[in-house]
Deep mutational scan, measured.
Amino acid sequence: YKPCFVCQDKSSGYHYGVSACEGCKGFFRRSIQKNMIYTCHRDKNCVINKVTRNRCQYCRLQKCFEVGMSKESVRND
């Protein structure tokens, strides 16, 4: 598999339409299922990588959408 499109960590396969790691897969699923609203405490362009991905949930979710993750493919079960 290609590296995670969101944070470049080791991917566990294709999730919600893109190559993603377990961490970003779970983060995206929880964010969508719980209708989470995050805020960025900087200027909405935080670097998201394996080391920084937990620092800003707003920018991490934005990057999930930017790389093509589909909220329609998240099931509500």
Rank of each mutant, 00 (worst) to 15 (best):
R29T: 15
K63V: 05
K44M: 12
K25N: 14
D9H: 03
F5P: 13
R60Q: 11
C24Y: 05
L61Y: 07
D9Q: 03
K2A: 05
C21P: 04
K10L: 12
R29V: 13
C21Y: 01
Q33I: 12
Y16D: 14
K10F: 12
G26K: 04
V18Q: 10
F65L: 11
H15T: 09
N35G: 13
Q8G: 12
R29L: 12
F65D: 04
S19Y: 09
C40I: 02
R29H: 15
C7Y: 03
K50M: 14
P3D: 15
D43M: 09
V47L: 12
C46N: 02
N35L: 06
G13Q: 03
V18C: 08
F65K: 08
Q57H: 13
K50T: 14
V47T: 13
V67N: 03
K71Q: 11
K34G: 13
D77T: 05
Q62N: 09
K25Y: 09
V6A: 02
T39C: 09
K63Y: 04
A20S: 09
M36L: 12
C46W: 02
R42H: 04
K25H: 06
C21S: 00
C64Y: 00
N54V: 14
K10R: 12
K10I: 15
Q33L: 13
V6K: 01
Y38E: 04
F27L: 01
K2N: 15
C4T: 00
R55M: 15
G13C: 05
G26D: 15
Q62Y: 04
S19W: 12
C40N: 00
G13M: 09
E22T: 07
Y16F: 12
G23Q: 13
C4N: 02
K10Q: 15
V18K: 02
D43E: 13
R75T: 10
R30S: 02
V74T: 10
K44E: 10
R75F: 06
H41R: 08
N76E: 15
C59G: 02
S31C: 08
R42F: 15
V74E: 10
K10P: 10
N76I: 07
Y16N: 09
F5M: 07
L61N: 00
K2L: 07
N49V: 03
V74S: 10
N45T: 11
I48E: 05
C46L: 02
V67Y: 02
E72L: 06
I32D: 05
K63D: 04
Y1H: 13
G17Q: 05
N49R: 04
K50S: 15
I48W: 02
C56P: 02
Q8W: 08
Y58Q: 06
F28N: 01
P3C: 08
H15G: 06
Y14W: 13
S31G: 01
K34A: 11
Y14R: 06
F28T: 03
C7F: 00
P3V: 10
N76F: 10
C7P: 00
C7W: 02
I37K: 14
G23M: 06
S70Q: 11
E22I: 05
N45R: 13
T39S: 10
C59M: 02
G23R: 04
K34Y: 11
T52G: 10
S70F: 08
V67P: 03
N76Y: 12
R30M: 04
K71G: 11
N35R: 10
K50E: 14
N45A: 13
Y58I: 00
D9R: 03
R30L: 00
D77C: 13
L61A: 03
R55N: 15
Y14L: 11
Y1E: 08
E66Y: 07
D77F: 07
M69Q: 02
G17I: 01
I37D: 12
V47K: 11
R42K: 13
R53S: 14
F28P: 00
K44V: 04
N49C: 03
D43S: 10
F65W: 07
K44R: 11
Y14A: 14
Y38N: 05
F5I: 10
T39H: 12
N45I: 12
S19M: 11
N49L: 06
C59E: 00
C59R: 01
F5K: 04
C56K: 00
R75H: 13
G13I: 05
E66N: 10
R53K: 13
Y14K: 11
M36S: 11
D43L: 09
G26I: 09
Y1M: 13
K71R: 08
E22K: 06
M69G: 01
Y38G: 03
R29M: 15
F28L: 03
I37G: 07
K2E: 05
G13Y: 06
M69K: 00
D77K: 08
T39I: 11
S11G: 07
I37V: 12
D43W: 07
G68N: 05
F28A: 03
R29P: 01
V6Q: 00
V47C: 11
K50Q: 15
D43C: 04
S73Y: 06
Q8A: 12
N49G: 06
D43F: 10
S70P: 05
M36G: 07
D9T: 00
E22C: 04
F5Y: 10
M69E: 02
Y1T: 08
Y16K: 05
C56D: 03
R29K: 08
Q57A: 15
S70R: 09
S31V: 05
R29A: 13
C21V: 01
H15K: 05
V74C: 11
K2P: 07
K50W: 15
Y58K: 07
G26H: 08
N54I: 15
N76L: 11
R42C: 14
K25P: 01
G17L: 04
I48Q: 04
V51T: 11
